[in-house]
Nucleic acid binder design. Structure first.
Lengths: 206, 206
DNA sequence: CTCCTATTGGACTCATAAGTCCATTTTACC
DNA sequence: GGTAAAATGGACTTATGAGTCCAATAGGAG
């Protein structure tokens, strides 16, 4: 449960506040400038903290901090899709979700904090890997639940494999966002979502 | 046409060979260890060259070298899909292409040189951005050509927008690969390709 | 043969940023 | 209010890796 060392250290109210200030300051700086352009000193400066504080609360240094930011951003990704992601119970509801996703990434623009942090940490690092894998697992599961519900009410062909379809849809979203990072356009993201949903509807476009 | 400076410098046969040795050595090291773990000194060591040589042929230093590697890898991506990508003229042909893509990325494993280089260079850098944008443009165009051909012979509903469909399919591929980088599985890539192609076939699974 | 330019070696500089250390202050709890 | 642990300030160390410089050699064109 606890981050890295596993040791549950005593945290006073003040300490907890400082820790959060550092974490959120780091996340903010990264969202704005990217990981590569974010040094520990930047974080310290923008949060009015000192080096000893940072290493006090994140003994693993930069890596531990980045990982914590990754967790934060991964959570945010799902948060930003709620409550629509959990209520895929009618075609209009799917459309609402689709729009929310597009909107979220359009707002985010060309800097994806999670992608940024991940490629810095390296996709092979156990910790980083776990964060992404878990995010994908939950995300895909919620989509699959939506598919199953629609199958239950006879709106989706029961011959479709919910998990596999959800996996494809999720891949489309990820790729759409990735392409957006370079092109600045959400065209691909929208196309992927629309095609995925159209396929669920049996080929009929909305 | 010429890389960055635009100045066409005189290159003797020997010089051209050295330049290529550096470039390919860098690409190889990156493919194996990732960008972050690739220093200029690593490249020099593994190619038996000296610092003055590297900066002689890549005056822009590390950044120019990485960009050159990105171009190399971007070309390779399309090369690896030939000739199938250009021959999407029947359903079995689509399947062959699909298999080739999956196989290519399965082989590549969890280190994607292009993704690695891109996130290091930053998606906003004009040069890096251009490389990816161009790759996506060509890739998508070739898929779209395949769709149009199938529409021409009446195998795909002419109501489908070839470019938009190709965009969605491409997004699925990108996302599938991205997810594979963390999970190690090509499940998502395969699901995305299969769903995309199934949609083209009008919902019928292969 | 000769001169100009390309090519090469490799030591050196320089900047940066992570991480360490210790002295000092604050807080929690009895 | 006294004490032990937590919290803090900030200077210092250290590692690393990019980029510079200059002197020395090789190659090609006339």
């Amino acid at each position: 449960m606890s981050p890295i060392g596993g040791s549950t250290r005593a945290l006073t109210r003040k300490g907890a506040a400082t820790r959060r200030r550092i974490l959120e300051g780091a996340a903010a700086h990264i969202r704005e400038h990217g990981v590569a352009a974010t040094t520990l000193d930047d974080v310290l400066a923008s949060t009015a903290t000192s080096k000893s504080q940072l290493f006090h609360y994140f003994p693993g240094g930069r890596e531990e901090l980045l990982l914590a930011v990754a967790r934060l951003e991964a959570d945010r990704v799902l948060e930003d899709q709620r409550p629509q992601l959990g209520e895929l119970t009618s075609w209009p509801a799917w459309q609402l979700w689709r729009d929310k996703v597009v909107d979220r990434y359009r707002r985010q623009g060309r800097l994806c904090p999670l992608n940024s942090v991940m490629s810095q940490l390296g996709h092979t690092t156990p910790g980083a890997q776990a964060v992404v894998t878990e995010l994908m697992r939950v995300w895909q599961a919620e989509i699959a639940t939506g598919v199953r519900h629609m199958q239950g009410i006879g709106e989706i062909d029961s011959g479709l494999d919910p998990d596999r379809t959800a996996a494809a849809l999720l891949a489309g979203i990820q790729g759409g966002v990735l392409i957006q990072l370079s092109t600045g356009q959400t065209t691909h993201l929208e196309a992927a979502l629309d095609l995925g949903i159209a396929h669920l509807r049996g080929g009929r476009l909305a």
